[in-house]
Write a protein that binds this DNA or RNA. Structure first.
Lengths: 164, 164
DNA sequence: TAATTGGTTCGGTGATTTCCGAACCAATAC
DNA sequence: GTATTGGTTCGGAAATCACCGAACCAATTA
């Protein structure tokens, strides 16, 4: 981490680590993403990233491409300049939430499956824990709804913003 | 996976995988935990687990102890029997939620930090994305509340249950 | 005391991940 | 045509992980 303040550097590490396990990204990808979120510059070049992260060309290349592929970041070009410039996609927060939503939906399905399996095969156990299982299912459902309304809000905000 | 139906076997794999990445457990630990959740038997012995999972003594030992340490499971003994019997803790669902709560709180703190960092250091960017950042923060807050009320519900249910 | 049972600990192996450097390629500049 | 720039691809090194078998230990049984 060069050319950035110590405060920012620390926050990059912390945020990077968080991306790392929330989105299953390699450490370097998490850090690159964090750098972009915490920066006011609109567009970091390949070389900028190499310098800031002190990583090799090949690693930076791989991880930038990964982030692009996952739509966390995008790149643009300037006329008369062969370089690519990278920045976070406008919808990165929404993408994060959509990812969560997907995983919550999966979990909810699994919990329903488990509940109905136990209802059928372990009726006594199910009776005992019925309410707990259902409370859990209820929790996941509420969480799913919260996600869905939040995503809608974000879409609405972006539409509004685009009209300006 | 021996001595269990194919349906159960499949569900064990699926549920095990889910624990594996929701709680960062080793694969075998996830499967063991899944087996116990899907079983009506109250108390699996060390040997039972070895047979069901077809894993080695050492691996089973390590992973059972890990699950006990993390309070996902507990063990009890029977008089005149040296074996230990394992079962899910009564509060395993609550523990799961408490774990979630902790991670949400961490994330919320991080998001607040990022928002205030950008507010200070990248005011223009912050202004543009202000509402998105706040919507996200709001989402996390709601989720946190949902978790807290769910946990309370579970505690209440358990207390009620204990009185019977 | 010797053998068995229930379980733990340790060293090592195969699989996976993350990163690097070197070679490489395609487009532009000289 | 040659050199440089911007970036990709490939092979391998280092680290980590999950699991196993073998040796081990402590408590019970014979």
């Amino acid at each position: 981490m060069q050319n950035i303040s110590e405060e920012k550097c620390k926050l990059v590490e912390e945020l990077g680590l968080s991306f790392e396990d929330n989105h299953n990204l390699p450490p370097l990808a998490g850090r690159i993403y964090a750098v972009m979120i915490l920066s006011s510059v609109d567009g970091h070049s390949f070389e900028d990233i190499i310098e800031i992260t002190s990583a090799s060309k090949s690693s930076v290349s791989t991880n930038l491409n990964l982030l692009v592929q996952l739509k966390f970041i995008e790149y643009f070009t300037k006329t008369g300049d062969r370089k690519r410039y990278f920045r976070t996609t406008k919808n990165y927060l929404r993408i994060t939430l959509e990812e969560y939503l997907e995983s919550i939906e999966k979990e909810l399905n699994l919990v329903k499956k488990v509940n109905s399996f136990n209802k059928e095969h372990n009726p006594e156990k199910f009776k005992k824990n019925k309410n707990l299982g259902l409370i859990f299912q209820e929790y996941l459902t509420t969480q799913k709804e919260n996600l869905e309304t939040t995503i809608k809000k974000m879409i609405a905000f972006n539409n509004e913003f685009d009209q300006l």
